[in-house]
């Protein structure tokens, strides 16, 4: 991931190689199959620390889900803003987002309370 040249906190205008005027400068695509998830300028860059299950879980006997901390997201207010995306069933008031074509994920999450979606920058490609 980029070493965030001038990335700032929420609300403050952010610019780097991916973010311009606070939104995604480029198209957001699946890392694995290239499926288009978001059009340019349709997600708002936010910083927040969240635990997100790993995309590739180690196949051990214990069913413990392995997480990692993710702190850069695109915030999408309306789910129909997405071009192509999958929503999983609800787990603890969240749905996970996945690629609509190859099912890779989670690439982010959807909050059932606010009905807002968050896409992790580290889990997608910019194009």
């Amino acid at each position: 991931m980029s070493d965030s040249e001038s990335v700032e906190k929420n609300g403050i205008e952010v610019s780097n190689e991916y973010v311009e005027n606070g939104t995604n400068k480029l198209i957001v695509k699946c890392k694995f199959c290239g499926s288009k998830m978001l059009d340019k300028k349709s997600g708002t860059f936010v910083k927040q620390e969240k635990d997100l299950p790993l995309m590739q879980q180690e196949t051990g006997k214990d069913a413990e889900v392995q997480n990692e901390k993710v702190n850069e997201f695109y915030h999408v207010e309306n789910m129909y803003t997405f071009e192509n995306i999958g929503f999983t069933h609800t787990v603890d008031n969240y749905k996970y987002l996945s690629c609509a074509d190859c099912d890779a994920g989670p690439v982010g999450y959807y909050d059932m309370n606010t009905k807002h979606s968050f896409v992790a920058l580290s889990r997608i490609n910019h194009a």
């Binding site: 590739q56 879980q57 995306i85 929503f87 069933h89 787990v91 749905k95 609509a100 890779a104």
Partner: peptide, 22 residues
């Protein structure tokens, strides 16, 4: 789902299951 040659290891997502797609 679009089947492809290099099918991704989808264990986590498929365990929970897809509710809907856009």
């Amino acid at each position: 789902f679009r089947f492809s040659e290099d099918a991704f290891n989808i264990s986590f997502i498929s365990t929970i299951g897809i509710d809907f797609k856009i």
